[in-house]
Design a protein around this nucleic acid. Sequence first.
DNA 1: GCCCATTTGTACGTATGTATG
DNA 2: GCATACATACGTACAAATGGG
Lengths: 76, 76
Amino acid sequence: MVTRGTPKPPSRQLADLLRAKIESGELAPGTPIPSIVALATEHQVATNTVQKALRILKDEGLITSVPGYGTFVAER
Amino acid sequence: MVTRGTPKPPSRQLADLLRAKIESGELAPGTPIPSIVALATEHQVATNTVQKALRILKDEGLITSVPGYGTFVAER
DNA sequence: GCCCATTTGTACGTATGTATG
DNA sequence: GCATACATACGTACAAATGGG
């Protein structure tokens, strides 16, 4: 759940949430992550915020994005 | 000069522009970079775009930001 | 080859939060 | 307390890439 009024901003909360799913294996390497719009709707945040969260995970090498196609869990 | 209609987005153009000034020594290590608002006004882009450009340089280790204080050219 | 829906990427303008001096 | 500056988020818009029909 993404909440406000906490020291941890929504973008980090969402990044942490997705990272946990990846590391737990719920999102396996090679599988697609829900689209940005889907994540924004699901977690009640702006698409920009989702982009920011995904950027964090990209910087960590956990995911890769293909424009016009989708975002996927990286092979480790 | 930051232009549109080119394959290189404004945020990258601005990042490249600032990087060149740093590497040429025009902006020496330890010296402050103009504020985000100042850069946005000067280059006619949104503050968000400036933030994006600065983020690129931060990722490259060329600058560091201190909230409420300013952004500075990194040492070395 | 040509539309078209989907998806990522970038940008805009604005608002608010937080830190510094 | 106040002014300045960075950080985050919102909603919106449009470009470019992809894939399916």
